[in-house]
Structure formats: C-alpha cells, structure tokens
Amino acid sequence: MRVIFAGTPEFARSALAALHAAGHDIVGVFTQPDRPAGRGMKLQASVVKQLALQYGLPVVQPQSLKLDGKYPDDAKLAKEFTDAAQADVMVVAAYGLILPQWVLDAPRHGCLNIHASLLPRWRGAAPIHRAIEAGDTQTGVTIMQMDAGLDTGDMLLAETCAISAQDTTASLHDKLAEMGAHLIVKALEQVGQFKPEKQALEGVTYAHKIEKAEAAIDWTQTAQVLAQRVRAFDPFPGMTIRWGGEVIKVWQAHVQTPARIEDIQKKPGTLLAVREDGLQVACGEGVLCLTQLQNAGGKRLPVADFVRSFKGQVGDVFQS
C-alpha cells in the first residue's frame, strides 16, 4: 500500500521499521521538528526521522498542521505534499500533533492510529505510564480508525499484554512497541475488510501528559501507590525525595511489611531503617522500601552502594 507515516519517538520507530520490512510503499514520513537535546543543546532529529533518512524516505516536519493556525505556511506545504502523495492510508504512532480534518480525509482509507492501551481505557498522551501508575495488571495495543476526537475512533484490531509486578514504563514500552509494530502490519493486510467496533461509552479514562511536577514523592500516599508511581515514572521523570538540600531520585522500590507495629503509626516520611537491602520509609499507609537511588549528578546505585555515603539516620523525616 502507499503509506504516509506519522510518528516521532522510539515507539513509532518500531512501527516504521516493520512497515518498511513488510514492503509497503512509504511515500512520506511526518515527524516533529528537530529539537535541542543533550548537554550542548544541539538540534537533534527524532529517531523516526533518522530511520526515514536511512531508508531514503522523504521527511516532512511541520510545526503545525492547522491551515488557520500559527504556522499556516507549514501546514500548506504539508497539505501540498499529502495531496501529491495520493496515499492509501496514513499510519500514526505517537506523532505529537493533532490531526485536522483535512489530514484525516486525505488518504483513501483514512488514518490508522497505533495506541498503547486497550481503548477506551487510557485515551491520551501517556497510556503506558498511567496504566502502571493505576496498578493495572493488563494493557495492550489498539489499532484505531482516527476521527476528530481524542482517541475516540472506531477500533479495528486489539491485542492484550500482561503488566508484570516488575514492569516499568521503559520495559512495558518496549513490549508494546513490538506488539504495535506487528499489529499495524497485520492491520494493513486487512484494510477494506474490517468491521469497525465502536468504543464503549463506559470505562473511559484519560492518560494525561506526564509533568515533571509529579516527580516529588508525597509520603502521605500509600506505599502501594508510591511503588506503582516509581515504576510508572521510570525513565521519566523519576520519583524524587529531598534530603539535606539535595534531590535524590528513587528508581526502584517495593512495599515492605512493617517490622514493628509502632512503625505503622510513624509520621509519613519517617526513616524506619537504613539497611543494605533498602531504606524503609513510613507512608500514609504501609512502608516503602527504596532499593535503587541516584544522587544529583551521579548514577543509579543499588541501595547497598548508596547507603555508604548516605548520612540519614533512623527517625529522620523526609519532607513531602
């Protein structure tokens, strides 16, 4: 099929590679403009752009696709390219721009989205993070016929994936990226033969974008919720605690059975134990054991190494 691909991060890169390997005629790739990155803040192309150039595919990087928006010239050029491409379908995976109606209508079979959840649960920008944060035990990938709403289109294909107790956003991302790549190739084999399924009106949840402000640990929350958030926010933004004027990132933690009954009644944030197998901290409910941490400017350390330079003592209180 003649395909326009739209995507930006690693999740989308996997899908582009799969479509190319399957032999589809990828007539153009839309991706976000180059952004400053790294210590030198040099402009860096998205991983999708890098792969597209490797394949020798034409790349389009509009600031916006709205013809009446802030960048109408960008949108006009994108429309001229899209009209000329005469694509059968557009495949969209974590592109990062809202598609206006002219884009949705341009390909013969419309636009198909690879969404990393089982819709209608976790519509929106961060479905992988929010599924782990909520304690879900199952998620998956949905191939959806896009419409003007936010992930509200008819479902075409779906596949489920278990969320293990050890999964972080990083590990679950990789599983779902591979699943999405496989599923979109399967979907293009069936274009024109689908019986689209309307999304249920019940069970709708929204996966709001992850903000850096969410990183700070609130010790008044339960240990279970905090353990889920630690996994959900790995690799970004990482959960943080403040100690001695420094910010420490927490990368691994689990719920700990309290050693003493009186620990249950300690003020949230109280350091209950400093051990080589974990820093135990009282929460609003339960005890959280921190097992991998990172000092500012340092690297991730197992707690056995971290405690060698940590000056905290039992009874100290981390601030929320």
Rank of each mutant, 00 (worst) to 15 (best):
R2P: 07
A6K: 03
A6N: 08
T8D: 06
P9W: 01
P9M: 05
E10I: 15
L16I: 01
H20I: 00
A22P: 03
G23L: 03
F30S: 08
Q32N: 09
Q44V: 12
Q44F: 04
S46T: 12
L51T: 07
L53P: 03
L53M: 13
Q54K: 11
G56Y: 07
L57G: 14
Q61I: 00
P62E: 06
P72C: 10
D74Y: 01
D74M: 08
D74K: 05
A78F: 02
K79P: 02
F81T: 04
T82Y: 11
A84M: 04
A87C: 08
D88M: 02
V89S: 07
M90D: 06
V91A: 02
V92Y: 09
Y95L: 01
L97S: 12
L97I: 03
Q101V: 00
P107D: 05
L112V: 00
S117P: 15
L118Y: 11
W122N: 01
W122Y: 13
W122A: 03
R123M: 06
A125Y: 06
P127L: 10
H129G: 03
A131P: 07
D136H: 09
T137S: 11
Q138C: 06
G140M: 03
T142A: 07
M146G: 10
A148E: 13
G149H: 12
G153N: 02
M155L: 13
L156R: 10
L156A: 15
L156G: 09
A158K: 14
A158R: 14
C161K: 09
C161V: 11
A162K: 12
I163D: 10
Q166D: 10
T169V: 04
T169K: 14
A170I: 07
L172T: 01
H173F: 10
L176A: 02
E178Y: 06
G180N: 08
I184T: 01
A187V: 11
Q190N: 05
G192F: 03
G192R: 02
Q193P: 00
F194Y: 07
K198R: 12
Q199T: 00
A200T: 11
A200C: 04
V204M: 11
T205M: 09
H208V: 12
K209C: 08
K209G: 00
I210A: 11
K212P: 11
A213T: 15
A216R: 15
T222H: 00
T222K: 00
Q224W: 01
A227F: 05
A227D: 05
R231I: 02
R231L: 07
R231K: 13
P237G: 06
G244T: 00
G244D: 08
V247G: 15
V247A: 08
V250H: 01
H254R: 15
E262W: 06
D263Q: 15
Q265F: 13
P268Q: 03
V274M: 11
R275W: 13
D277W: 15
V281D: 04
V281L: 00
C283K: 02
C283V: 05
G284K: 00
V287T: 09
L293M: 06
A304I: 05
S309K: 13
K311E: 13
K311V: 12
G312H: 06
D316T: 05
Q319G: 11
Q319Y: 01
